[in-house]
């Protein structure tokens, strides 16, 4: 028999490692053609950090995003990024990028002021160019700046870093601690169908909504939710190295027997919701959230199975065997 159930789950996802004192650095180089290379150490494993950090650089430099290329593979000269973990990159790295952009602007403005024999304060950086307000002679497009710099003794690289305050201990009495990271808020609503004779669970539909500060790139936010859901489905329903845990018998040795969900296992209906409440710790209010999109479906699936069958299953993954045993108990 097939039984359907629905449920909702809510999660708080701490991002930025609660201030474990992990820095990120960035550098931005002006190239002879007036475009820029953003140099970072951030590993982009598909989450889109290269894209959003280019967005932040373009915004901070007030130039078109096409004029910014990114290099996160600069090997032994790469700036440090402690890592793509703790959903920290969107919260921490943009600070380093903005600082690098400010540093580069200072250098270019100083160089232009020297060329024009004016005080640096008289030089404005805007609109992909530098100029002295009200003096038509003293204006250079960024292309002209790039060319000009080639003939000077300056290497135009701005650098920046961001070092969040190190971790503070919990108060032993109250458990309170200083919030130096940011928390994102997620919600999932799922509908499942449980086959009570085979224990198979079909996740029919999923709605996931996230409050994430600022959706720097709404498309990649949705893709993070899609990807996180796939990880969550595997976590909730299938992925297990030791099917007879704590017995080590039949430990999985190959991916052939390690079941990650396929596209066929994906729910037919997925809806995304994004809510933005700017976070004070982020640039433009941005904070991370993505890892939470893999955890939030799990408890909703478990609760929906309860709604469908009246049985609480408190172990994951809910393999067909686990489900059938629980239904029998």
């Amino acid at each position: 028999m097939k039984k359907r159930g629905k449920a909702m789950s809510l999660v708080l996802h701490p991002t930025g490692n609660k201030g474990a004192g992990d820095p990120s650095q960035a550098a931005i180089a002006l190239r002879p053609d007036g475009t820029f290379t953003l140099i970072i150490g951030t590993a982009d494993l598909g989450q889109g950090s290269n894209t959003i950090l280019r967005q932040f650089a373009a915004d901070a430099l007030d130039v078109p995003i096409e004029n910014i290329s990114v290099n996160n593979q600069a090997g032994n000269v790469a700036p440090i990024c402690t890592g793509s973990f703790a959903s920290r990159v969107t919260l921490i790295d943009p600070h380093a990028v903005v600082n690098a952009a400010d540093d580069l602007k200072d250098k270019v403005v100083n160089w232009a002021a020297g060329m024009w024999e004016v005080a640096p304060e008289a030089v404005t950086w805007a609109d992909n160019s530098v100029f002295v307000e009200g003096d038509e002679e003293k204006t250079m497009t960024m292309t002209e700046v790039g060319e000009g710099v080639v003939g000077s003794a300056e290497l135009m690289i701005g650098t920046g870093a961001w070092y969040p305050a190190p971790f503070t201990e919990h108060d032993p009495e109250t458990g309170a601690m200083e919030s130096v990271g940011a928390i994102s808020f997620g919600c999932a609503v799922v509908e499942v169908e449980v086959d009570t004779e085979t224990g198979l669970i079909d996740v029919l539909s999923v709605i996931q909504v996230w409050e994430l500060g600022k959706a720097v790139n709404p498309l990649t936010c949705k893709q993070q939710i899609n990807g996180g859901l796939s990880v969550g489905l595997g976590f909730a329903l299938a992925e297990s190295c030791h099917p007879y845990y704590p017995d080590a018998a039949h430990a999985v040795e190959h991916l052939t027997d390690y079941y990650v969900p396929t596209f066929a296992d994906y729910p037919a209906e997925i809806s995304h919701g994004i809510e933005e409440v700017p976070h004070p710790a982020g640039v433009k209010g941005a904070k991370g959230f993505s890892e939470g999109s893999s955890t939030v479906p799990i408890s909703a699936i478990i609760s929906a199975v309860h709604d469908a069958t009246g049985v609480w299953i408190t172990e994951v993954p809910l393999t067909p065997e686990v489900v059938l045993k629980a239904l029998e108990a």
Partner: peptide, 8 residues
């Protein structure tokens, strides 16, 4: 009856 809907 497999362990998922494809590749099993």
């Amino acid at each position: 009856l497999g362990r998922r809907k494809a590749m099993t």
